[in-house]
Nucleic acid binder design. Structure first.
Lengths: 245, 245
DNA sequence: CGCGCAAAGTTGGAGTCACAGGTAGCGGCC
DNA sequence: GGCCGCTACCTGTGACTCCAACTTTGCGCG
């Protein structure tokens, strides 16, 4: 059937079937290019193309010199998106329960709000905000990128700062100061990582990222908004949705 | 710098820069393979490879005969993950506000709970469940796949059924019958679509999907669990997290 | 018997050529 | 002036080749 399909797809489909149905378990070696050319009677281009597609899909992983193997599907670590004003605490708990030691480094500076951020914070475009870029790590390996924006009037210091570990967010400080956060809005989408993100997160090829935009509201005022960039191959987001009926 | 980088990456980076900074606006034509070989003094392989990578990243789209163009970035339709026992209602509202007409077809049948589903429903493996597969559409185009599982004791009819439009879920029927749903748990992750999903959703190459697992709880009893498969290039998930502090 | 090194095998990058099928624009014909 | 067909161009796929870098394995030598 579908004899007009590209040749390489025949190879892709056969190997994929064997991987998903367990004939080829995680760690099992995949036939090499030359073996594929012989086994399926295809050219080397088709064999190479098939392997590339499967690697891109994340089903196999190739290492120079030692061949392709079925990728061990990493267990997706849960990331609890909870009702707290201190996202680091939740992250730390999740990482620790995964048996790793969480750390965090950050750098804050004054910046102008680009249109999208301005809209999310309900401030005018290019108005001054404090931008904090954080890298969250587990056992030293980068796991998540966090960029948060606070209007300057909520920020503490407008001078560039750097540090590691906890940094009190605007949301946290306002909550402690008697202005409680009333709601958190999040939107989640998938996208291809930018080169710098791919670099910082040490992402293998083909991995997409979850981009989570979170905005903290105190009444009708947006207090802080953050962008989280999360490797799609290592995490799953966990939401608890209370039913108020 | 980085002169040892693969040649095709030079092309990818140059074109990507032009696309993201707006030099090449959406719809603009991308140089063809032959033009790239001349302009960047690279071989045809490198040109081809560069175009493939950019297409895989979703930045450009190629059509046989008419060349590559910068992809119009589709606005990500919001999908509100709300505290309702009738997911179709939320979906319908979101699709309608996007100016499209929502429809739904479904098919229910008796099945044995595979291990993962059994665990989510807190029933023993391979115990009988009712499985409902739905395809949600907007203006006739498939937008989302939904598979839900209910333990037979909550299900209505064990005979295979088929239909379109509303189908009362176990969660809804229990709630109406006086057993209120107390919590909804969701986990979100990204993955490569399976061939059948790619087919049903008419996904272009390189698009990954959001996989949302939702479980309805009535007290400590799992009433129903659903898997939603959502094209990652067209939707973003929206969560409202009330703060109970 | 053990260790090191060389050879064989593998991936990833790169070049070249070829061909089928599709698009679009231009020119000629009615 | 309008319509039709042809041609040039483009993509997707495929074959064949070469090479650098790396891993593994097994053989030979000390």
């Amino acid at each position: 059937m579908a004899n007009s399909d590209p040749v390489y797809l025949r190879v892709v489909e056969d190997l994929r079937r064997q991987i998903v149905d367990g004939t080829l378990p995680p760690g099992a070696p995949i036939p090499s290019r030359h073996q594929i050319t012989r086994k399926y009677s295809v050219g080397e281009t088709a064999a190479r193309h098939a392997l590339r597609v499967l690697a891109q899909e994340g089903l196999i992983i190739g290492r120079v010199g030692s061949g392709h193997r079925v990728r061990e599907r990493p267990t997706l670590l849960p990331l609890h998106r909870t009702r707290t004003t201190e996202p680091l605490a939740a992250f730390a708990a999740d990482v620790q329960s995964g048996g790793r030691h969480p750390t965090c480094t950050w750098r804050s500076e004054l910046a102008d709000a680009p249109p999208e951020i301005a809209q999310r914070l309900r401030v005018s475009e290019w108005s001054p905000v404090i931008r904090v870029r954080s890298v969250l790590r587990g056992d030293g390996r980068p796991l998540q990128l966090l960029t948060s924006y606070e209007p300057v009037e909520f920020g503490q210091s407008q001078a560039p700062e750097e540090g590691s570990g906890e940094r009190r967010s605007a949301a946290f400080r306002l909550a402690a100061g008697g202005t409680p956060i009333t709601e958190i809005g999040e939107t989640v989408h998938v996208r291809v990582p930018q080169p710098t993100e791919s670099d910082l997160l040490e992402l293998p090829a083909g991995v997409q990222v979850l981009h989570v935009e979170r905005t903290y509201w105190a009444g009708d005022r947006a207090v802080e908004t953050t962008d989280a960039v999360i490797p799609g191959d290592r995490f799953r987001l966990v939401y608890g949705i209370p039913v108020s009926l």
